[in-house]
């Protein structure tokens, strides 16, 4: 059963979608069978969330909104996973030592 899903989330991470968060995001995206795309605006342009080259090239900064959409069997789960990762600041907040 193919489904589609979409969502959006504000990037709160200090320096935005930089190297380490982009690595995490693309690794997570690759774990889903669905096609998964992100964009910096509601109408695109949409780029492949599984490609770090393209994700980094967006240069999405802190405070900007990330739009997410997916199509495939696990579309909703994929969108939820990505928005949740961004909302959790890529699990980097609070890891001070």
């Amino acid at each position: 059963m193919s489904e589609t899903a979409e969502g959006s989330v504000v990037i709160t991470h200090d320096v935005g979608l930089h190297a380490r968060p982009s690595v995490k995001l693309t690794k997570l995206a690759k774990g889903f069978a669905s096609t998964l795309e992100i964009a910096g605006a509601a109408h695109g342009p949409w780029i492949d969330a599984k490609s770090i080259v393209k994700v980094m090239a967006m240069k999405a900064k802190q405070g900007s909104t990330l739009f997410v959409r997916a199509a495939g069997a696990d579309a909703q789960a994929a969108v939820d996973a990505v928005t949740s990762l961004v909302r959790r600041d890529f699990d980097e907040a609070g890891d001070g030592h």
Binding site: A19, R20, V23, T26, D48, S51, I52
Partner: peptide, 16 residues
């Protein structure tokens, strides 16, 4: 390690 991990991820991406 993070810096190198980023470079590996970039090189592994066919889009590059």
């Amino acid at each position: 390690q993070d810096i190198l991990g980023f470079q590996v991820a970039m090189l592994e991406d066919d889009a590059l």
